[in-house]
Simulated scan of single mutants.
Amino acid sequence: MKKTIKLLLASVLTFAATFAQAQTAEEIVNKYIEVTGGAAKWAELKSVKMTAKGKQGGMEFPITSLQKAPNLMKQSVSFQGKEITMSAFDGKETWKTNFMTMKAEKGEAEDSENAAKSMDFPDPFLDYKAKGYSIALEGEEKVEGTDCYKIKLTKKPIKVDGKEEEDFSFYFFDKENGVVIMNRSVMKKGPGKDQAIETLMSDYQEVNGLFFPFTVSQKMNGQVVFSMAMEKLEMNVAIDNKEFAFPID
Rank of each mutant, 00 (worst) to 15 (best):
M1R: 14
L7I: 13
L8P: 07
L9S: 12
Q21N: 11
K31I: 01
K31R: 15
V35I: 11
T36W: 03
G38R: 12
G38F: 04
A39N: 10
A40N: 15
K41V: 11
E44F: 01
L45N: 08
S47Y: 00
E60L: 08
P62F: 03
P62R: 11
A69W: 06
A69G: 04
N71R: 11
L72K: 14
K74T: 08
Q75Y: 01
I84K: 03
M86I: 15
A88E: 05
T94A: 02
T94R: 05
K96I: 00
T101A: 03
M102T: 09
K103P: 01
G107F: 00
G107R: 05
K117L: 12
K117V: 06
A136T: 14
E141W: 02
G145N: 09
T146L: 01
Y149E: 07
I151F: 01
I151S: 04
P157T: 09
E164T: 15
E164Y: 04
E165T: 15
E166N: 12
D167C: 10
F168N: 13
E176M: 09
N177P: 02
M182H: 07
T199Y: 00
M201A: 12
Q205E: 15
T215Y: 13
T215W: 02
Q218H: 08
E234G: 07
M235P: 04
A238F: 01
D240G: 03
F244V: 08
P247D: 07
